[in-house]
Design a protein around this nucleic acid. Structure first.
Lengths: 203, 203
DNA sequence: ACTTGAATTGAACGAGCGTTCACTTAAACT
DNA sequence: AGTTTAAGTGAACGCTCGTTCAATTCAAGT
């Protein structure tokens, strides 16, 4: 019954979002009741409706924020199109890993719970996903055009790369033997080879 | 109300499993009620309990069958260890795609609904998954030992390859422009490159 | 025609669901 | 000190959930 002192709606909302992310990742959206979520942050269930109009809106908000963060972070990190495709591909690879590794729960959610969204909400998230994927495909296409990357079927390759990179979050653990930097290097090595870039084996 | 004529428990059970697979893949295990599942096969909800002791056992049965099928199919298809690693890697890649492409719903289920399993049931499925993954890792290790494959970090690489290949089921459509054989070729090209095998671009 | 036994039903159980609402608390402002 | 307003409560609503069970249907065996 540790009730927070002082009124700070913003902090409370953050705590709710955090708990929701964690619980939905662990047990799933449908399995998570508003009562349990509220209990996790020491509130009555009714109090949640001060922060979200309903359960679906809460899920959508979580997924939308996840994608907003991803797209704006990538917008800030992406190299200009004048940069050679090889370097842009490396930048994408390292960015994707660096961004997703500390967000395993959000990643999990944002493609396990797509089916729990209403069609309209789903369409919004799906469009954002496609935009991100297209950015990678563009890099591969540019490299193929310039003859610096082996990128036949760039859209298929883009999906393959993203699936491979995103899969890291299903096994990576902070306490494990590999540092984030190690993971970056190992995966960049694989992506580079996939794109026909000659690279040395990583230690 | 098209009631089946004649009593054929086996056929009914198959219909239930099929409907369950389809519906859980679409809306999720928690979101699927026994009443709705029963309705889909023109039964009352109570009738389902003749085929499965409870809902959890049904889910487990579906996932267990999926993994049994995978492992026994791979046992039948896997090349002997005396075969060069490069060919075994190609065999694995083509097998994985060929086996999974027509089983998109089962694939989806069998790693979206892992969290809906009880701990004991989860442990069973997880062990089967690891066995499959280890088989691929062994191929990479053998190739690294023989100097024919670039396979530093074989366990990481095995996970990367499986994530990449399994991801196909999220976008592949029968009506799409690529035949299963096309997909096999494109992905084998990528896997081969990842493993340091020199291959030509696929058309 | 009669019996058997598997298949299936409708009704019911207690529990939990998302959500609403009138009401209380407590912080902030004048 | 008194007013305003945001934050949170507890009870309730209507509904659906997984599951059980006595009763019934119906194909098959005699």
């Amino acid at each position: 019954m540790a009730r927070r002192v002082g009124s700070d709606g913003a902090r409370t909302e953050a705590a709710i979002r955090e708990a929701a992310l964690r619980l939905i990742a662990r047990i799933g959206y449908e399995a998570l009741s508003m009562r349990r979520l509220a209990g996790e942050v020491d509130l009555g269930a009714a109090a949640l409706y001060r922060y979200f109009p309903n359960k679906q809106a809460m899920l959508f908000s979580l997924l939308k924020c996840h994608m907003d963060e991803l797209l704006s972070a990538w917008d800030a990190a992406r190299p200009a199109r004048s940069v050679p495709a090889r370097q842009r591909l490396e930048a994408f690879t390292r960015f994707h890993i660096r961004h997703h590794l500390p967000r395993a729960e959000g990643v999990f959610l944002s493609y396990m719970e797509l089916r729990s969204l209403t069609p309209q909400n789903f369409a919004v998230i799906e469009a954002m996903r496609r935009r991100y994927e297209s950015d990678l495909a563009e890099i591969l296409e540019d490299g193929a055009g310039a003859g610096t990357l082996a990128a036949a079927h760039p859209r298929v390759k883009a999906r393959a790369i993203i699936a491979m990179l995103t899969g890291i979050t299903t096994w990576y653990r902070d306490a494990g033997p590999l540092s984030p930097r190690d993971v970056e290097n190992i995966y960049w090595n694989m992506v580079a080879r996939m794109a026909g870039i000659e690279v040395k084996e990583v230690a």
